Structures are given as C-alpha cells and as structure tokens.
Amino acid sequence: MDGFDWAGFWAGVGSFLATYEAAFRIVGVIVGAAVLRWVLGVVIRRVVDRVVSGVKKAQNVEHTVELSASPLHAVRVVQRTRTMGTVLNNLTTWAIVAVAIVLVLGELNFSVTALIASAGILGAALGFGAQNVVKDMLNGLFMVFEDQLGVGDIVELQSTQGPVSGVVEIVGVRVTQVRDVGGVLWYVRNGEIINVGNKSQGWARVIIDLPAPYTSDVDEVQRVLLDTATAMAAEPEYKRKVLEPPEIWGIESISAEALVIRLVMKVRSGDQFDMARALRLRLKLALDEMGVAVPSLNRIVMDGIDAREAARSSRRPVTPPEDSDL
C-alpha cells in the first residue's frame, strides 16, 4: 500500500469525472427530481389524511357540534380536500418533470430557449383547439375550491343546456354527475354550469303554506299549528334536526276561498324534506281533531292570450288522414 500511486489514482478519477460530467449531472437532476417529488407527495398526502381524519373524529362529538356540522358537510369537506390533494399532486408532478426535462436538455447542449418557444406555440395551439376542455377543468377546480357543491349535496344547476336538479354523486374536474329524483344520472360539463343552487349548505327552512277556511278563527288555527310544530320539534327523533323554534309568519294571502297561513321551521341542511313531510302529517291530524277542513283551491281563471294558449295546448292533436284519392 505504501507504493500505491495515489496521485495517479486521483488524477484518473478526476479525468473520469471530467469525461462523464454531463452524465453525472443528468443523473443528479433525475435523482433530485424524484426525491423532491417523493417528499412533496408525502407532505401533501399527510396534510390530506390529517384533514380527513379530523373530519371523521368531529362526527363523534356532542350534540352542539353536530348541529353546526352535518354529515353532508363532512362528506363535502373530505371530498374537496381529496380533490385538492389530487390536483396538487398532478401539478407538482408536471412542474417537476418539466423543470427536470429542461435541465437535462441543457446538459445535453440542446437549445432550451428555442425548445421552450416551440413548446409555448404548441401549447397555445392545443389550448385554442381544446378551449372547452380547459374551461371545464378550470370551472370544476373553482367549484371545488370555493365549495359551491360537493358529494351528497341536493342542488339545482342552471346550465347552457337547461336546468338539472338532484343529488350530486361525483364532482369531477371536468364533469359533475347529478342523479335526479327519477333515478336518471345527468353528466353536466362544468364549463356549462352558470348558476349553482345548493340546498345542503349551512341550514334550510321548512315552509308550509296551509289554507284555512275564510270564516275560521285565525288565532286559534295559528295556535294549533304552532303548538303542533313545537311539540314535534321537541321529540327526540327531530330535536337534533331543528335549529330554531318554529314560527308563524302570519297570513300569506287572502281570497274568497281561504286564508293561507305560513308556518316556518329552521332545520339542518338536508333534513328539510323529511321534516316537511312529517310536519304536514301532524298538521293534518291536528286540523282534523280541531274540526277544520282545508278548503279546495282548484279555481283557475284565465282570459285573453293565456286562455287561448291553454285551450290550444289542451286540444287533442288531430292526425291527418293517410293519402287518399284526391
């Protein structure tokens, strides 16, 4: 070992490194990009998992918190968080790959500036040709980030192709899937959505307009309606769904046939439909016990253009006879 030529050895190593310097740099760029992508992926995944696990734990809290955070809201938070995590992962991957490719091409003595200019022109051409797809994706990302809708929400969408209402099943980056009350699954492009009406965010209100005979005792009818709604709101089955005590807003309209009395109840979002059905049944039974018959409101008076249009639309279409001897 004492006679080993260390100077020559290190000179050979230096010559080897100088010869394959570009190759080592390329390998370093690739390894560095892979490590950076792995680190960022771990960070994003941990953040998403922590948010999701926090939401799941929040669903086991006491009654007061359950009032402000319904299961639909929790599903929406989880879905939005996971969507954001997927988007961030994709953006991170593409950004790191693009930078790594540019650095590798630079080490190979390619004209990176000309390549970037060419890629920009190609990207502009593709963006112009696929502008609808880009619009769908951008609109979908904004809807997710802004929490306009989420999985399990009951929504009414106004799109360029017409209105769509139902329960959201999937919120994609490009297409949102909504299943209506008849079971039909609608695929709505995000770029075509103009307005979003969400019935599952925050809170909802049960509104019942109940007609009573014109000659009835209005104060007594209102008292019975309010007592019935208050008793229902106090039942254990419905107590957690009610956010505020029921209210009588008074007479909504007056006609020769009936007085329409409005009863309202503020409830948790998503529960307004079940609560309204149960409340209607109890109000019906209470009015029957009181001896109040709900009057019929079937009279329709039309004149002028409306009457003519209704008459024309109600006529049975006449099918012309088949060709005969003329």
Score class of each variant (00 low, 15 high):
Asp2Gln: 02
Gly3Asp: 12
Asp5Glu: 05
Asp5Lys: 07
Asp5Ala: 13
Asp5Gly: 03
Ala7Asn: 02
Phe9Cys: 09
Phe9Leu: 14
Ala11Phe: 09
Val13Gln: 06
Gly14Ser: 13
Leu17Thr: 08
Leu17Ile: 14
Ala18Thr: 09
Tyr20Trp: 15
Tyr20Thr: 06
Ile26Asn: 05
Val27Gly: 13
Ile30Gln: 03
Gly32Tyr: 05
Ala34His: 15
Trp38Asn: 09
Val39Ser: 00
Ile44Val: 13
Arg45Cys: 00
Arg46Val: 01
Arg46Asn: 04
Val48Pro: 05
Val51Leu: 07
Val55Pro: 00
Asn60Lys: 08
Val61Tyr: 06
Glu62Met: 12
Leu67Glu: 01
Ser70Met: 12
Pro71Asp: 07
His73Asn: 01
Ala74Phe: 05
Val75Glu: 01
Thr81Phe: 04
Leu88Ala: 13
Asn90His: 12
Leu91His: 07
Thr93Lys: 05
Trp94Cys: 11
Ala95Cys: 12
Ile96Thr: 14
Ala98Arg: 10
Val102Asp: 09
Leu103Tyr: 08
Leu103Lys: 04
Leu105Trp: 13
Ile116Gln: 01
Leu122Gly: 10
Ala125Glu: 01
Gly127Val: 09
Gly129Leu: 08
Gln131Trp: 12
Asn132Asp: 15
Asp136Lys: 15
Asp136Ser: 06
Met137Arg: 12
Phe142Ala: 06
Glu146Trp: 13
Glu146Leu: 14
Gln148Lys: 12
Leu149Ala: 14
Gly152Trp: 13
Ile154Lys: 06
Ser159Arg: 07
Gln161Trp: 04
Ser165Arg: 15
Gly166His: 01
Val167Leu: 07
Gly172Cys: 05
Arg179Ser: 09
Val181Tyr: 07
Gly182Met: 10
Leu185Phe: 11
Trp186Val: 08
Arg189Thr: 10
Arg189Asn: 14
Gly191Ser: 00
Val196Asn: 06
Asn198Trp: 04
Lys199Met: 09
Gly202Met: 06
Gly202Pro: 10
Ile207Asp: 10
Ile207Arg: 07
Asp209Leu: 14
Leu210Trp: 11
Pro211Cys: 02
Ala212His: 00
Pro213Cys: 03
Tyr214Gln: 02
Tyr214Ile: 15
Ser216Met: 11
Val218Ile: 15
Val224Lys: 08
Leu225Ile: 03
Ala229Asp: 04
Met232Arg: 03
Ala233Cys: 02
Ala234Phe: 10
Ala234His: 09
Tyr238Asn: 11
Arg240Leu: 04
Arg240Ser: 10
Arg240Thr: 04
Val242His: 01
Val242Ile: 13
Leu243Arg: 06
Glu244Thr: 11
Pro246Lys: 02
Ser255Gln: 14
Ser255Ala: 15
Ala256Lys: 14
Ala258Ile: 12
Ala258Tyr: 05
Ile261Pro: 00
Arg262Tyr: 02
Arg262Ser: 01
Met265Val: 15
Arg268Trp: 09
Phe273Gln: 08
Phe273Ser: 03
Phe273Val: 12
Asp274Arg: 07
Asp274Ala: 07
Met275Ile: 06
Arg277Met: 15
Leu279Trp: 00
Leu283Phe: 05
Lys284Cys: 00
Ser296Gln: 07
Leu297Asp: 05
Asp306Tyr: 06
Ala311Lys: 07
Arg312Glu: 14
Arg315Cys: 10
Arg316Val: 12
Pro317Asp: 08
Pro320Leu: 12
Pro321Lys: 09
Glu322Ala: 10
Asp323Ala: 14
